[in-house]
Design a binder for these strands. Sequence first.
DNA 1: CAGCGATTTTAGCCTAACCTAAAAACTGTT
DNA 2: AACAGTTTTTAGGTTAGGCTAAAATCGCTG
Lengths: 258, 258
Amino acid sequence: MTIRDIHLRVPDSCRPKGARDHEKSPLTESIEEYVEGIWRLEQVIPTVGTGEIAQYMGVAPPSVTTMLKRMAELGLVEHIPYQGVRCTEKGEALALELLRKHRLIERLLVDFLELPWDGVHDLACKLEHYISSDVADRIAAAMGNPQTCPHGNPVDATRDDLSVQLSALEPGDRAWVAKITDEREEFLSYLYQIGLIPGAQIEAVGRTPFGDVLTLKVEGREEPVAIGREVMTSLWVHTGRFDRAPEGVVQATADPRT
Amino acid sequence: MTIRDIHLRVPDSCRPKGARDHEKSPLTESIEEYVEGIWRLEQVIPTVGTGEIAQYMGVAPPSVTTMLKRMAELGLVEHIPYQGVRCTEKGEALALELLRKHRLIERLLVDFLELPWDGVHDLACKLEHYISSDVADRIAAAMGNPQTCPHGNPVDATRDDLSVQLSALEPGDRAWVAKITDEREEFLSYLYQIGLIPGAQIEAVGRTPFGDVLTLKVEGREEPVAIGREVMTSLWVHTGRFDRAPEGVVQATADPRT
DNA sequence: CAGCGATTTTAGCCTAACCTAAAAACTGTT
DNA sequence: AACAGTTTTTAGGTTAGGCTAAAATCGCTG
């Protein structure tokens, strides 16, 4: 009789991916990567479409379409076919937590393990999918709660980063005003006059060669307005190609100066 | 015109698994897990078959058969259909390096990050597939070159561990004598008389209820011999169901006492 | 307002892993 | 030597996530 009863068994978490009764979380490593990628793109370009994601992720556009469908089902992104994508609150939270893990891991790799400053990003891209938030907390504690990754990016990429500076818009792009960081009274007063208040829908029309003047159409106003650097850098917008203002955007109904 | 030329791109290593021109190493995470599992089984039971692997890995037997075929093509294991499996030198090296990474990671998690002693194994099972040998070296250095993992297993599971103590054999198992750790002259002399020299093929026949006496048939001898604890614990064997002695096993042709 | 180029989606296919059900091969017993 | 039981393999099917080629849609321009 040959030996049968082995009391050895690999822990469940180490079993092969597609195994039988495997506790299958719908959030695969791939989906996490997509969410993080889409979120990052939103920070840099005002309009995130299938093509941009495909280019960024290094895959073919049809692969992105398929993934977007699944991610939309999971409630991670809002996707309007042929129009564009935007992370939902849930997707954003996932992306932010992933970024936190990523940046803390980089701290550990560079400061404690003394791995090369310019070589840790790729490894962190892998590891970020496997550590829990608790482990990330432990890393933070062990490294003295660092505020940034070794490359200077903030560990806590808070919700604010969802909006982009107005200067990121290109002619043709549409967006909703999110927040204004310059709170001088006369400045706010001027913005209110031209209708640039939180929740206002705008569309970039034209731009001067040096980019120092941007022409905007503002919802409900006939005449476009020309704005300069000062406004462009103090006014942050939510972007997307949607026909309605995204959830979570303040619909300004009263004087913003209150 | 909408924005096209993004100069952002995810690093190649972060791209989705099956992507286009992805540098595809044939050694998938799954295959690494299988090799490690098979190697571990070899340490504990003398005969590793499809069923044992399936049970250990938590998958169905046909899945194992398929994987064994691929692993055999990669030169990681020798597989004789219906007979059994054994790691090759290459497979063994892979398993040993994987174990080293695993145990060093556990040290980092427990000693530096202060994660719970009984909870780090599963996480280490994941991470071991993603760190390079260089990173493992850096962990070893940062942790002061530990000799064992927190659970006492050696970081360097050297080649010696390939063999098992004779006492691991069950009636019906066959094996080849690998090495003898008790080198007293009279002991070796006795073993030589009964034919238990490196390379000798043996078969376990019977065992007393308390396991303190094992009856063996030795290749080329008619009469079985009864051996006790002293021999069982000093004599290490290579196991498997093969019809020939595995490569790397010394074929003793002369008096081993020289 | 029709047509044309660019972008996105659909349709159909591939690979790595897994699975179940059925066939094949070994092994021990009469 | 045949047969019955166990183990292993083969056969055929599923899912995740890629791919290419073709169809659909969008947006711009004559």
